[in-house]
Design a protein around this nucleic acid. Structure first.
Lengths: 238, 238
DNA sequence: CCAAGATTGGATCGTCAATCCAAGACGCTA
DNA sequence: TAGCGTCTTGGATTGACGATCCAATCTTGG
C-alpha cells in the first residue's frame, strides 16, 4: 500500500556513463578516503538513484577496481623514459609510489588485487628492465615478483592513514588537502609509542623511533629500491 | 509496547573473557576468512549476546587486531634459533610467511596496521640480526624497513584468496580446509588470464604465466628474501 | 540477608550494499 | 505522426552488519 505512483524527480538530461561514475568515485575516494565511497554518496553527487549506477557498474568492487585501474593507467601513461635500465627501474617504481602517495586508497586496492590489469604494464616494464640488466630468465620471475611485492608492501603501509573518516570533512574548516600533515602526525604518534618502549628489551625499535620522526617516506622507499637493485646485481649473468 | 519482561535464555555458567572471545574470533577467521568474523556469528558461537562481547572488547577493530597479535605472538614464540645471522633472518621471515600462509587474514590485518605490537618483535629481531650482519646504524633503519615491507607485501598478496565468502560454508560438502586447493586454482586462473595476453605487447607477463603455474609461493618468497639479503650485504661496514 | 557493582542477553538504531520494479526517454517502423 | 519495444533512470525495499543501550541476572562484601 505504498505510493508507487509518487512524483519523481525530473530525469537527467546529460547521459550517465561508466566513465562519469568512475570519475565521481575517484573524486569521493580522494576527498574522504576509502570509507567515503558509498553508494549513497555517489547518488547524491551524481543526482541519481541506485538503479542508474548499478546499470553501468556491476558491483562496488568493480567500481573500486575500475577507479584504481584508471588512476594507475594515467600515471603509467606519463612515465618518463630514463637513460639506463637501472635509472628506469627507479623511475618506474617512484612513479607508482608517487601515485599511491597522492591517492592512498589505490595502494590498499592494489595490494588486495595485484593481478588486475592496472599493474600489468608495471609488471611488464619491470620484467623488461630486468632483462636489460642481464638478469637470467629463470631469476627474472622471482626478482620481478619481489620488487612488485616490495612496492605493494610500501603502498599498503602508506595507505594506512589515520582519520580520513567521514567526519573529517565536517570538522576541518579549510577542507584543503590535509594529506601531508595527517601522515606526519601519524608517524609522530607511532614514533612516540615506540620511544616509550623498554630500551633493554627493544633496543633497535627504540632507536628506530628517532629515525622515524625525521625520516622521509619517499627517501626510504628509494633506499629500499636501491637495496633491491644491489641484490639484483648479484644475479647477473656473467 | 514491546515485552521488556520476556523470558530470557539462562545465563551462562562459565565466565566469558577476552581470551575466550579472541579465540572464537580466530576460529571464525580461520574457517571462513575475514568476512566470516561478524558479531552475529560470534554471539551464536559463544551463545551469548552483543552486550557481553562489547563488555570485554571495545571494538571490532580491537578484536581483529587482538586476534592478529595473538597468532603472531604464538608464531614468534616458537621461532627457531639458527646458526648465522643470515640464516636466522631467513628463518624469521619464513616463520612469518608460514603463519600468514596458515592464517591468510593475518596478512591483510598486518599490512593494514604494521606498527601494532604484533610486529614489534619481528622488527626488533630483524634489526638485531642486521646489526650482527655488520650493517651500519644509519642504513639499518632503511634495510629493516625494506625487508619488513617486502614481507608485508607478500603477506597482503597471499591474503588475497578467492571465494572464502560466507556461502562457501554452505556449498562445500566436505567442509574441510580448502586452503591449498583454493590458492592453486586461483593461481591457475591468473596464469590463464596472463597467457591469453598479446605476446607482442606483454612478452614478459605472457611468459611469466607459465612460471606462475609451476611456481611455489614459499620458494619464491625465499628467493625474494635472498635478493634483499644480497643487497643488504653491499651495505656492510668494511 | 541485602545493597552495590560487575556481567550478561538481546531489543533496537542507523548505515550500508544490493535487489527490484515501475516510470520516463529514446529509437525504430509503418 | 502514432505506436511499440528497448534502453535508461529513480528510488523504495530488503537483509546484514556494527554499535548502542538498558533491563535482567549474577557476584561480592558487609
Amino acid at each position: 500500500m505504498v505510493k508507487r505512483t509518487a512524483k519523481r524527480a525530473p530525469r537527467r538530461t546529460d547521459g550517465l556513463s561508466r566513465e562519469v561514475i568512475v570519475q565521481a568515485a575517484i573524486d569521493l575516494l580522494d576527498e574522504g578516503g576509502e570509507s567515503a565511497l558509498t553508494l549513497r554518496a555517489l547518488t547524491l553527487r551524481l543526482r541519481t538513484g541506485y538503479g542508474a549506477i548499478y546499470h553501468h557498474v556491476t558491483d562496488k568492487n568493480d567500481l573500486l577496481a575500475a577507479a584504481a585501474d584508471d588512476v594507475i593507467a594515467r600515471v603509467l601513461a606519463g612515465a618518463v623514459v630514463a637513460a639506463g635500465p637501472r635509472e628506469a627501474l627507479r623511475g618506474v617504481a617512484l612513479g607508482l609510489f608517487d601515485a599511491i602517495d597522492a591517492h592512498p586508497w589505490v595502494g590498499a586496492e592494489l595490494s588486495r588485487q595485484p593481478w588486475r590489469p592496472a599493474l600489468l604494464d608495471f609488471y611488464e616494464s619491470v620484467g623488461r628492465l630486468l632483462h636489460a640488466l642481464a638478469v637470467p630468465e629463470r631469476a627474472r620471475f622471482d626478482a620481478a615478483g619481489a620488487l612488485v611485492n616490495y612496492v605493494l608492501g610500501v603502498a599498503a603501509q602508506n595507505a594506512a592513514r589515520p582519520g580520513r573518516g567521514p567526519k573529517d570533512t565536517e570538522r576541518s574548516t579549510g577542507r584543503g588537502t590535509d594529506q601531508g600533515t595527517g601522515r606526519a602526525d601519524f608517524l609522530a604518534g607511532v614514533a612516540e609509542q615506540w620511544s616509550e618502549l623498554d630500551p633493554g628489551r627493544y633496543p633497535f625499535v627504540h632507536e628506530a623511533a628517532t629515525r622515524l620522526r625525521e625520516h622521509d617516506d619517499r627517501d626510504q622507499f628509494l633506499a629500499g629500491v636501491d637495496i633491491f637493485l644491489a641484490g639484483i646485481a648479484t644475479l647477473r649473468r656473467t
